[in-house]
Design a protein around this nucleic acid. Structure first.
Lengths: 212, 212
DNA sequence: CGTGCGATGTATCGGTCCGATACATCGCGG
DNA sequence: CCGCGATGTATCGGACCGATACATCGCACG
């Protein structure tokens, strides 16, 4: 999952670890706390070993500033390679079982702007199915095994059931919206290119809830 | 976390691995998919090494049935020890930072029937605080960084924000209920004791939502 | 003027948990 | 009689986390 997310972010622009973590947190904040350095750095190393990213030198222009005074140690900027882009394209198009669990789905969804519509639909439906199964499980427990469990556990299940029903509804909306034709993929930001103010991708759910 | 849950379940009655997994799934179904054997068995071994659980022989009564034909390999039943009960008591009373993340909170909550009221309150408030922080983070992103993100990512954040707000409200209700005096702890099932039909612990949230 | 502290930045280590896999038994329906 | 799904125990490699260590930079406060 981390591999996927890193490749996706570096696709947009080169970054160093710290920055990557911040972007990751901003993009995935809704689904996971904050990615740990204990995961990040080893993963970067792994990706580099696989040839999907490379280190890019820091401060390439204006080579003036004190070349060897205080040794100038510093930020390691990573950049995606051609192989990396290929890898990302492969990852974004496929949908295995891990694509439907909470984290996997969240990460894929976060990159939906670069996913083709057919795949988006496939993933949304797979996710819905999975949540529906979880929902049925909870209903079973609340129905058949209710007297075996204490009131707190039951309350927990009810809250979980509620969340499931809510997510299914959310997914239904997204699916309907997806099917309704619109939803263009973001126009593929060029490798070179100047200034990408870029996109304004599809409005996935027009359903804004007005809170008072 | 697994350690906590296993100790909690074995407190109620001895079980073998498979059974333990099923109970775990029933009790924690609302918060996590299904615990893997790749976690369960190593953890059981760890708990046994620590002296918190022991193996109990299978089929102690009616020792007749074919003693050594086909070797009678079989289910390993685990039973909690006195040290294990002590350990569980210690775990259930304390609330560290890991108590407030999704999984940690869920597991603690699932055993609230055996948690004293002061601790319940402490945990609920800690959880609320944590969710409020996450909520603020999401609001920040949706406010300040909105134009940097694509529509799908934004939709994900909105959905997450919605879930946060909902959970905070849920927690508020539980906290209010907790404070309102009621909510007795389950009367501590005895170590020996015959027939515990047991409990009917507090109604944590009287707030049932009538769905049409 | 210095000094200490919070943000930036890179990195490792031990431990928890997961997913895949393997293997054996039992009861039941075809 | 045979296969198949449920029951049951177990291991292995890998992903990810939390704690920890350490170094630099800017700036606020004494």
């Amino acid at each position: 999952m981390l591999e996927f997310a890193i490749l996706g972010l570096l696709q947009e622009s080169p970054m160093h670890g710290y920055e990557l973590r911040k972007e990751l947190t901003a993009k995935l904040g809704a689904i996971r706390a904050a990615i740990s350095y204990g995961s990040l750095y080893p993963t970067l190393r792994r990706l580099q070993a696989a040839g999907w990213i490379t280190e890019a030198a820091e401060t390439p222009a204006t080579a003036e500033e004190v070349p060897a005074l205080t040794s100038r140690r510093g930020r390691v900027v990573y950049k995606i390679t051609a192989d990396g882009k290929e890898r990302f394209a492969q990852l974004i198009a496929q949908a295995g079982p891990e694509t439907y669990d909470d984290t996997g789905f969240g990460v894929h969804f976060a990159f939906f702007a670069r996913t083709d519509q057919a795949t988006r639909l496939r993933i949304l439906e797979g996710r819905r199915r999975k949540i529906e199964e979880r929902r049925e499980g909870l209903r079973d427990v609340l129905g058949r095994a209710a007297e075996r469990l204490d009131a707190y556990t039951l309350e927990l299940q009810r809250h979980g059931l509620d969340a499931c029903e809510r997510e299914v509804r959310w997914l239904e909306e997204l699916i309907a919206n997806e099917r309704s034709g619109r939803a263009p993929t973001v126009p593929h930001v060029g490798t070179a290119g100047g200034r990408r103010e870029d996109n304004s991708p599809p409005p996935p759910g027009e359903t804004r809830k007005e809170r008072p």
